[in-house]
């Protein structure tokens, strides 16, 4: 009996070694372990084994079954592994991807978002105002003389009812101060319009970011600190910039901010990037007159304001040579800003 079991084991292992596929695996399993299999038949012969040999034969029987089962399992695992490998063998991982549509944000949105992120960290909240404005909000309240050239119909878009398309986002300063009492700490991104023929450096509609901070003791030093932080965050901590005295009707003192631009192969040069200054007391007086209260008493509050062109910022940050690219929406242009 023991010899018979040895023979079965030898035969089974030989048969298993010859297995090539799932079907022959199953055949071999059935031939040895199936209901009519040779090992099953041998096991049935246990009842004829004398009692004193039962233990040894039983043990042998288990060993043989174990050996065959184990060999079958190993072979089965090998077969599965081969099949799995074969299933992916034809894949060329160097093929280009199966495409998904790719989109992205407009460079102006990216620049604006950068600016907004920095200014929000500094405690500014967003504000907005209408783009169709009254002359009072756009000019009078901002201390602009009645015969200032900016009011010309040759420079500013008007409507029949006397309103106009705001020429700067500074009108949002006035809109905000009409509604809110100090402290006011806002930024207002938005469109502004000037009656310019469109060319590489002019758009009839462009984008600005306005800032205003009014409180009891706001100083020129605060303005300097705010813009220095802002421009270092945007352009890097080593950015060189300068505050150049200038004139705006609605701030005094007034400055323009230049940053030094380094372009490969060209001499570095100063580029004007923002206008700023301390809110002119005449602006507070006019707002106070409109409000009919003393919330903006020029003897009690001070403030700073700044404004910058986002289109220009985008041109500088991305090296865009022509403003018209910003309004043409050519996908070949837009897809360069996916970042």
């Amino acid at each position: 009996m023991l010899a018979q079991l040895d023979t079965i084991q030898t035969e089974a292992l030989a048969a298993i070694a010859g297995i090539t596929d799932e079907a022959s695996l199953e055949e071999v399993r059935i031939a040895f372990l199936g209901k009519k299999g040779s090992l099953t038949a041998a096991a049935a012969g246990m009842r004829d084994v004398p009692a004193d040999q039962k233990k040894d034969v039983g043990q042998k029987l288990n060993e043989v079954r174990e050996a065959i089962t184990s060999a079958l399992e190993t072979t089965s695992a090998d077969l599965t592994a081969k099949k799995d490998a074969a299933a992916f063998a034809s894949i060329d991982p160097t093929l280009p991807s199966r495409p998904l549509p790719k989109g992205g944000l407009h460079p102006l949105s990216l620049v604006l978002d950068e600016a907004v992120k920095v200014l929000r960290r500094m405690g500014f909240a967003l504000a907005e105002g209408p783009e169709i404005e009254t002359e009072w909000h756009c000019f009078d309240a901002l201390n602009t003389p009645a015969d200032h050239p900016a009011r010309n119909e040759s420079d500013t878009f008007y409507f029949e009812n006397g309103k106009l398309l705001r020429t700067h986002t500074s009108s949002v300063q006035i809109r905000t101060m009409e509604k809110e009492v100090p402290p006011v700490r806002i930024i207002a991104p938005g469109s502004a319009f000037r009656r310019d023929e469109i060319d590489a450096t002019h758009l009839s509609a462009f984008h600005q970011l306005e800032g205003l901070y009014v409180d009891q003791r706001v100083t020129l030093a605060d303005l300097k600190g705010t813009l220095e932080y802002f421009f270092r965050e945007i352009f890097g901590s080593k950015t060189e910039f300068r505050f150049r005295p200038h004139f705006f009707p609605f701030t005094e003192p007034s400055f323009e901010v230049d940053i030094k631009l380094h372009a490969a192969g060209r001499p570095s040069k100063w580029i004007e990037i923002a206008g700023c200054g301390m809110v002119d007391p005449a602006v507070f007086s006019e707002v106070g007159r409109k409000r009919g209260d003393a919330a903006y008493d020029p003897d009690k509050v001070t403030g700073f304001a700044f404004g910058m062109g986002l289109d220009r910022l985008a041109m500088i940050m991305y090296g865009i040579p022509d403003l018209r690219l910003l309004i043409e929406n050519d996908v070949r242009f837009l897809q360069q800003f996916r970042g």
Binding site: P101, H106, A205, I327, N329, V331, L334, Q335
Partner: peptide
Amino acid sequence: GFHEARNLK
């Protein structure tokens, strides 16, 4: 997959 456009108003 959308690209953002900005047109003149």
